[in-house]
Design a protein around this nucleic acid. Structure first.
Length: 415
DNA sequence: TCTGGGGTCCTAGGACCC
DNA sequence: TCTGGGGTCCTAGGACCC
């Protein structure tokens, strides 16, 4: 049975949400991402700003140069998440098979909804209107028999439009488009393909091993399938819905000015580690891998990590690991632009960890950390921080004598 | 005036094992 | 006496997405 997919993309999502809270922004050039003089990039630009060449991804300062009269907003992630939930509720009025692909876009499997909702164009029109009525937001809708084609179509339909690609016409629709339009083709792949003389999706679609003169790698192979208008992987009912646990949790920070001071870098590293652990606890996940990321002033970037014998979600442990990695790999005195902490190889509590948790002291510590999280909720991230001397002692006790773990968050030692 | 922050996935090379 | 052929796991880097 042929399938029908919608890809729905919200128009200038962050900016449009800001306009709902402050209608005076409507029609003005608006940039969400930070202050005009900050280090950072544009996360979203209003259509009025786009007329000046301002679009997401360019530097804030460059945006200010191109459009000095633009209103610059830092943005409200909380609001966007809330609105995203409201948007999802609208989708669910049309089909239970909704896959949010990001905060502002989704795939809807509309197969078999004809009897209830009418032909796809009619359903899309109803979706447009209900979206506006329920959320105050505009969206663009692509309709096709393959998700990848629906996504390209929604892009072509912007803003506030819809585009249906009839069954059998997928390849013909894609063929004249530049390879860049295909999801998965970025700057690098575009350049490589262009060097091979391939500029359009039609040219990409007919690539074969014979023409290429070599084996087609997995990455390129799935791009060729997509260029033909076929979904590389299947989309089955059991895959639809909320994606499961995250595969990694990370936090990073770019300094306003490149930071050469070891103490300042360590302190940021500790903060980021604590933020990562906190999110691990929120997700009830334990990390078997901890990585740090360093980017020097000249943008050279590297990551260094360790795999742990026992997974962790404890601030004291992650802080110490991050700190150790930092001192092993930082070229002392060399100014740092960005520093980050990542946890991965995440596992739900199980097996060995159950044993650990059964340990009374350990569970008291976990409870203590939850109490710390609650305080931070009320009074802010900086309200509670474990002093470094105490952390080192903490670590010794955890490793050498678990039964000596304190049953509360202890006061820091005098250093 | 350079280039955020949070993710996922793929690849290449080395270690290790049979 | 200059050496094989997989398979798997691990690390680091990088492309890409919003």
């Amino acid at each position: 049975m042929p399938r029908t997919y919608f890809h729905v993309d919200m128009d200038a999502f962050f900016v449009s949400v800001e306009e709902l809270y402050d209608p005076s922004l409507k029609g003005k050039p608006v940039v969400v991402g930070g202050r005009a003089d900050q280090r950072g990039v544009v996360a979203a630009a209003s259509y009025a700003a786009r007329k000046f060449g301002v679009h997401s991804g360019i530097a804030l300062r460059e945006a200010a140069r191109r459009c000095p009269q633009a209103v610059f907003l830092h943005g409200n992630p909380e609001r966007y998440r809330e609105k995203s939930h409201a948007v999802r509720q609208v989708f669910l009025c049309f089909t239970p098979a909704v896959e949010m692909a990001s905060i502002d876009e989704a795939y809807l499997d509309m197969t078999g909804t004809g009897r209830l909702l009418g032909p796809p164009i009619k359903a899309a029109d109803a979706l447009h209107r209900l979206m506006k009525q329920q959320t105050g937001l505009n969206c663009s809708i692509g309709i096709a028999g393959a998700r990848v084609v629906a996504k390209v179509a929604s892009d072509q339909a912007k803003p506030n439009g819809m585009l249906r690609i009839l069954p059998g016409l997928e390849a013909a629709f894609l063929a004249p488009l530049e390879v860049k339009r295909l999801p998965g083709v970025g700057e690098v792949t575009e350049k490589k393909l262009n060097q091979m003389g391939i500029r359009t999706l039609g040219e990409l679609a007919v690539l074969t091993e014979a023409k290429l003169g070599r084996k087609i790698g997995d990455g390129l192979g799935s791009l060729i399938e997509k260029a033909k208008g076929l979904d590389a992987g299947g989309w089955y009912d059991d895959e639809v819905g909320e994606s499961g646990d995250p595969k990694s949790i990370s936090h990073e920070h770019t300094f306003d000015r490149d930071e050469p001071d070891g103490a300042a870098l360590e302190s940021m590293l500790s903060r980021l580690s604590e933020m990562v652990c906190r999110r691990l606890r929120e997700h009830h996940l334990w990390a078997r891998k901890v990585q740090i990321k360093l980017r020097y002033a000249d943008f050279t970037t590297f990551t260094r990590g360790v795999t742990l014998e026992h997974p962790t979600q404890l601030d004291a442990e992650v802080v110490e690991i991050a700190r150790k990695l930092f001192h092993q790999h930082w070229q002392k005195g060399r100014a740092i632009r960005l520093i980050g902490v990542q946890s991965s190889a995440l596992e739900p509590a199980s097996g060995q960890m159950e044993l650990l948790l059964a340990d009374a002291a350990e569970s008291r510590l976990t409870r203590a950390m939850s109490a710390v999280d609650a305080l931070r909720d009320r009074f802010g991230e900086s309200a509670v921080s474990l002093a470094s001397g105490m952390k080192a002692r903490f670590r010794e006790r955890t490793h050498e004598n678990p039964s000596a773990m304190p049953g509360r968050v202890p006061k820091p030692d005098k250093q």
